[in-house]
Nucleic acid binder design. Structure first.
Length: 535
DNA sequence: TCGGAAGGCCC
DNA sequence: GTACGGGCCTTCCGAT
């Protein structure tokens, strides 16, 4: 029922816990997929903890009362997970702290087993615990062992928080902390799904898949198996390169789209249909809302979306014939209001590098890609745009070649050269960041967050990260500030996609666009549009 | 049953 | 001879 982990008097510890204004909390669930809670661990110190089984436990109401109390500070390690699991209990989410975020801010590994060494503790991941007990899920582990694990986690969490309180005072942590209830509220709210439309689109793609499947199985292969696709295409006389691991023939989209064999084109159509069906259409059958889990555990500080990723929904294809997956999402209040921080990453590059020409374009409301055309003496705006992104990502000649269709590598080098001459300030900054990435193995964002650069993937990769991390990380920070400024719209906030936020209903008059453009020193005007469907 | 590889969607 | 930064998810298929 109630397990006590400590070396003093359980009753005294319990009374102290119930009087405490600061609790470390951890929830155990069936497993990572089935997030049904089975127990809650709480600690009001770094020495004593309790574990409560969730089922019919007379002590549970007292703990839940603490969790519901906004005056009580709740410390979690990876709070988005616990907040989502505890959602049915109606807990307070406003007074949330998160030691995983603190760990990231001080450059310490954020997984608890690693972090706990820092506070003289040893914790075990749920996965390892289950493996040690040869259990399929946590229900297969003896309850006292689950309780020990959970309690140990809360003790480590409590200790980590105490140790990292100086960091918790930082402006940066306070921003992240403020984001936690925002992300939980969006995750909890979900977005409407038009079942009629969904079923209609599912039928469309199911028919396609059925058709292609009939043909392929008639030919003796499965269209869903890259290995078999490579084998059959090669047998029909197509040349296919090897995959990176050299274990099989490459059959990716780029490769297949270059083949004249109609079978290759059919495989591509099959894959698209199957992808839409398996990832979006079938999983949303029969639900009136779609829910995601938003977190901030990307290395650059970006918001990420999982358990129904709403950040990678296919956009409308220009062909027009195939129905778009995005159109199944509908507003509760007739329309969506969509704000978009256009060109935010290039604005960040302009700001961080102080490149005069870029800054001039952005401040005068010009078109950066058109300016790049002029800078480079190019006639194709699409390719100018690709060069801009190539510079941000650190693409080499062959990658740019594949992307732009410019076959002559020397020509690409000349274009790159003229980009660097035209944007000399940006080029110098990029050069500097590449050096930093490889030599210092860490770089800094706009708001001062230090990002560790991985060195294990080689020098080129580290150099690219040196450029991209601060750009992507700073853009993420600016957009978080924008989201925090939109908290009065939280109840109608539906989706965040890095530089885009979707609100339910027409909220234009509730947006202070002037203020939003100036949340940070990087000028970030927002494009606003109203749409009956998303996408 | 698990996990790597391959493929593919987003910014 | 050579990786374009950050994510998430699905299917296939061989290893355990």
């Amino acid at each position: 029922m109630r397990w006590y982990f400590g070396s003093a008097d359980p009753q005294r510890a319990w009374d102290e816990l119930l009087g405490s204004r600061r609790l470390a909390v951890d929830v155990e669930t069936v497993d990572l997929v089935d997030r049904t809670p089975i127990g809650i661990g709480v600690a009001a110190s770094g020495e004593e903890a309790f574990y409560l089984s969730i089922f019919d436990n007379p002590y549970l109401p007292e703990v839940l009362a603490k969790l519901r109390d906004g005056r009580v500070q709740k410390i979690y390690h990876n709070s988005p997970y616990d907040l989502a699991v505890l959602r049915p209990f109606g807990i307070d989410i406003s007074n949330t702290e998160d030691t995983a975020i603190l760990c990231r801010l001080v450059g310490y590994p954020a997984d608890l087993p690693s972090a706990s060494f820092w506070v003289d503790m040893q914790t075990e991941s749920a996965k390892d615990l289950m493996a040690r007990h040869k259990a399929k899920n946590m229900l297969g582990v003896p309850t006292d062992k689950v309780g020990l694990k959970c309690s140990t986690d809360t003790l480590a969490t409590f200790r980590l928080f105490e140790k990292l309180i100086p960091t918790a005072d930082s402006k940066y942590y306070q921003m992240e902390r403020a984001m936690l209830p925002v992300l939980e509220t969006i995750s909890r709210g979900g977005i409407g799904v038009d079942q009629e439309r969904r079923a209609q689109i599912e039928e469309h793609y199911a028919r396609e898949v059925e058709y292609y499947n009939a043909i392929c199985s008639g030919m003796g292969f499965s269209a869903g198996s890259p290995y078999q696709v490579g084998f059959i295409l090669a047998k029909r006389g197509n040349f296919l390169p090897l995959t990176r691991s050299k274990r099989q023939l490459a059959t990716d989209e780029i490769t297949l789209s270059r083949l004249s064999d109609p079978l290759a084109q059919m495989v591509l159509l099959y894959r698209r249909a199957e992808k839409f069906l398996g990832t979006y259409l079938r999983p949303l059958a029969g639900v009136d809302r779609a829910y995601t889990t938003l977190a901030m555990d990307a290395v650059t500080g970006r918001v990420n979306s999982s358990r129904m990723n709403l950040q990678n929904l296919p956009k409308q294809k220009e062909s027009g014939l195939a129905p778009t997956v995005r159109s199944i999402f509908i507003p509760d209040n007739k329309v969506f209001t969509i704000i978009d921080a256009s060109q935010i990453e290039l604005r960040v590059l302009a700001y961080l590098s102080g490149d005069r020409r870029m800054l001039e374009v952005f401040q005068s409301g010009g078109d950066i890609h058109a300016e790049t055309m002029k800078v480079m003496g190019m006639t194709d705006r699409i390719n100018a745009k690709k060069f801009n992104f190539a510079m941000v990502y650190g693409a080499d000649e062959s990658v740019i070649s594949g992307h732009t269709g410019i076959r002559d590598q020397a020509a690409i080098r000349r274009w790159t050269q003229s980009w660097m001459e035209g944007y000399a300030g940006a080029a110098a900054w990029i050069w500097e960041q590449r050096k930093k990435g490889w030599q210092d193995a860490k770089v800094t964002t706009l708001l001062g967050r230090q990002l560790k650069v991985p060195l294990d993937k080689g020098q080129k990769h580290a150099e690219n990260c040196g450029v991209n991390y601060p750009i992507q990380g700073s853009a993420a920070e600016i957009f978080k500030l924008i989201m925090l400024d939109c908290r009065h719209l939280l109840d109608v906030t539906r989706v965040q996609v890095h530089d885009e936020e979707v609100f339910d209903g027409d909220v234009r008059e509730k947006l202070d666009l002037e203020a939003l453009a100036h949340v940070s020193p990087v000028y970030t005007p927002l494009e606003v549009r109203i749409a009956e469907r998303w996408g």
